[in-house]
Amino acid sequence: NQASVVANQLIPINTALTLVMMRAEVVTPMGIPAVDIPRLVSMQVNRAVPLGTTLMPDMVKGYA
């Protein structure tokens, strides 16, 4: 099973992602693959992402 990107903290809307905000976890359903974490750094979320939420492609501006 491939790990997905999960929020390590509450990420407010329009926040630029940093490594500290994300962790890799095997979850269902799968979200953004953990291998993409370096690519996500400095991209912004388009909604508030609660702690423990799996990041989906439509939550990150410019990802999809």
Rank of each mutant, 00 (worst) to 15 (best):
V41N: 06
V60Q: 01
T28P: 02
D58R: 04
A48D: 15
E25C: 04
M43E: 06
T54C: 04
V49A: 05
V20M: 10
P12Q: 12
N8F: 09
V45Y: 00
V41S: 04
D58K: 08
Q44F: 11
V41I: 10
L51P: 09
P12C: 07
G31K: 00
V60P: 01
R23H: 12
N14Q: 07
T54A: 08
T28E: 15
V26A: 12
P38S: 12
M22G: 01
V27F: 02
T54G: 03
P12M: 05
V6Y: 02
G52V: 02
V45C: 06
V49C: 04
T28D: 15
T53K: 08
Q9P: 00
S42Q: 08
V26D: 15
S42G: 12
V60A: 02
M43K: 12
D36I: 05
P57K: 07
V45N: 03
N1D: 15
E25L: 03
V45H: 00
P29M: 13
K61Y: 08
I37Y: 02
L17W: 02
V5W: 02
L10R: 10
M43L: 13
P33Y: 10
K61T: 11
N1H: 10
T28L: 04
E25V: 03
T18I: 05
I37N: 00
I13Y: 07
P33W: 09
T28Y: 06
R23P: 02
E25M: 04
L17Q: 00
G31C: 03
A34W: 11
R39Q: 04
L40Y: 03
V60G: 01
M21L: 07
M21C: 03
L55K: 00
V26W: 07
V27S: 11
I11F: 01
N46K: 13
L40A: 01
Q9A: 09
A3P: 12
Q2K: 03
A3E: 15
P38W: 04
S4M: 02
L17G: 01
K61R: 10
V20D: 13
L55F: 08
M30L: 15
V5E: 01
A16W: 06
M21V: 04
I37C: 06
T18D: 05
A34T: 06
V60I: 14
A48F: 07
P57L: 05
Q2V: 14
T53A: 14
T28Q: 14
P50W: 13
N14L: 05
V27P: 01
P38Q: 08
